[in-house]
Nucleic acid binder design. Structure first.
Lengths: 194, 194
DNA sequence: GCAGACGCTGACCGATCGGTCAGACTACGG
DNA sequence: CCGTAGTCTGACCGATCGGTCAGCGTCTGC
């Protein structure tokens, strides 16, 4: 029973392995602070091998970010419905927090290095999506204060979950943080329609 | 009437000029993304000149950050009084926002590159100070939700003022943003004592 | 007017950067 | 049993990195 794709994927997908390791190192030490040599060593391959699987350092970076950006795109699509329907604001908040938690590393990179790396297409696309998410709310927020409230909620949540040292988040149960965060963001967001 | 320091400082303090330019470039392109060559060119000097005024790239970086970190230290000292006295919470909030505004570039660097550059003493000192500011509040915040509320307020305000693209802040009058931000942070912080 | 300090520079250093390339080894289909 | 495609590697490339050093003017106090 032949199939049109390889009968068995190699047990270890080297490219995927490299993407994962690279994503972690780019988040930890920055894009320009991480060399192909370091990535190769961490993965147990040679630098040449990394460049065999990926056209360039930038290509590796983009492919490592791609899945997270794709989900961010999907998230933006699902927002439109929820923002207009008042009852689903809570669902949006939970989805937002969970998206950040699921894509910690990519979010860390976009948040902390987004401006610096704006000339990389994948990064530019991600920041564009984030901006559109903000705008989809902003459109019916007349006062500066309301807009700031939204900004503090989203940026504060993102930074706490993703970019801060353990200091603020501490060792508290991650689920406890998640729920508290959903509460606080919800408080800041829901009075916006009033 | 001789003095024990040079009678007249040179009209243009080259070291100070280099610190300012370097701070800007480190904030914009990251520490490892900024070379001494680039800094020298931007300042109109040679790379050798930069290294004449500063022992090393890291020394330049530290000296560029130093004034802001010193003020952060001062700020931490002034907090202790204000946190305990309930009436001065509003004053604290305004001071916090103004501190961020006054030291935009340094704050940008610490926020976005603090983790990556934690092995640089000045950066480590700054993150330590920030942590102590957080702890000075946390100490009498029993629930996770209250602590998250504080974290969202501080991190959100910091990120909006300092680290975001113009997207959220927009072209709105900076004073308008400042006041709205003080309002929102105040809302999040003041109910903490209840 | 001379000695020395100061500010600055180009030439140069070894190390490392991202990237190329010619092969080596393996596995598989004809 | 051979050819070919896929995977991986070391040797090598020019460019750039942070940093050193000898020496160039200029300015100043003696």
């Amino acid at each position: 029973m032949p199939s049109n794709q390889p009968i068995a994927r190699p047990q270890t997908d080297v490219a995927a392995e490299l993407r994962a390791i690279a994503l972690e190192m780019f988040a930890e030490n920055g894009y320009s602070g991480t060399s192909l040599q370091q990535i190769a060593e961490a993965a147990g391959y040679s630098k040449s091998s990394v460049l065999y699987h990926f056209r360039s350092k930038e290509a590796l970076f983009e492919e490592a970010l791609a899945p997270s950006v794709a989900e961010l795109d999907e998230f933006l699509g699902s927002i439109v419905a929820k923002v207009t329907s008042d009852g689903q604001r809570a669902q949006f908040t939970a989805d937002f927090v969970d998206l950040l938690l699921e894509h910690r590393l990519a979010a860390h990179i976009i948040i902390n290095q987004g401006q610096t790396l704006s000339d990389i297409p994948m990064v530019d696309r991600a920041t564009g999506l984030i901006q559109r998410i903000g705008e989809s709310f902003m459109s019916d927020l007349p006062t500066t204060k309301q807009r700031i409230r939204l900004g503090v909620a989203l940026a504060g949540a993102a930074y706490i979950l993703v970019a801060s040292r353990p200091s603020l988040t501490e060792i508290d149960d991650i689920d406890e943080v998640r729920e508290a965060l959903i509460d606080v963001v919800g408080e800041l967001i829901t009075p916006l329609s009033s």
